[in-house]
Amino acid sequence: MERKLLTKDSYKLLISKIISGKYQLVAPVKVDALVDFRRIKSADEITEDYIVTVSSAKSVAFPRNEKLFGFEKNNKKLEQTDFDFDSIPHTVLLGVRPCDAMGFASLTSIFCWDSVDKIYTTRLERTIIIGMSCAKADASCFCTSVKGNPGNTAGNDLLLTKTPDGDYITEIVTEKGAKLVAEFYELFREDKGAEKEPLLANVPEVFELDGILAKINSKFDDEVFWSEQAMRCLGCGACAYVCPTCACFDIQDESHGKTGQRVRCWDSCGLSLFTLHTSGHNPRQNQGQRWRQRLMHKFSYMPDRLNTVGCVGCGRCSRACPVDMNIAEHLKSIIDN
């Protein structure tokens, strides 16, 4: 893989040039006590002080609310205004962790399953992902258990790894990344060949993925196992909404008078309403069954149907969970039980 070096000064310059150019720049910023992705206007807003952002980067391609089209009603007539693909901005997404970057492959597998969701794919096509390797990890991180690692290039267009001097080793991962480097070629130096590995966080492997994949299907009918696992689960949507690979959504209409729009918004399999029929029947009646769906979807259905694991080991779900439903720990117990 081709490498370049971006000095700390050039890095700031690159950010300024991106912002003043044709791209909008989305990067991690401090939002009170948290760090989350925001559209930024100046390089000073960016922070590097985070393990992972609270929310995943998925909203760049799959926003939490999205107008699918507009409509206007006039008596018995109805007019629709199609989604405006031209309105999708060209975006540079900076400071994405390798786990997050890997998550886009899972999302894409869902949004392109037979019928292609062009709204999602166009958003992703117009996004350049500049990842940032992890120098730090915490107790919730487990990317190495799901075939990721703190310096994983997959899913990124460019991957930066900060050196002790404050410069950034720049790995050019994709054609898109190469184009961006070419656009700002004067900012990149020849790489000095510094070793990347020692700069990366140590993320211990919590479980053996193949073991989970081999065993999880046999656990489906073990109601007691799932209800015990989900005993403390409160049934909110926090885990799904911060997850980089959770793609489940709801479709809702919002209107004022004659005009309105159809909106796609995030939804979660953890919520009891998710599968509730109008008749009152609910195929997933208890939290154990809903928790099972969450794990099975990621570690059985997606591998089986879409050839991808629906988890990147970012640990956001565990951090966001009000009752610490640590997913890695629960997965591990599938092997242990």
Binding site: S55, R64, C236, G237, A238, P322, V323
Partner: peptide, 12 residues
Amino acid sequence: SKCIKCYACRAS
């Protein structure tokens, strides 16, 4: 503007 309506507030 930051709320993602995950209903963790309600659930807890």
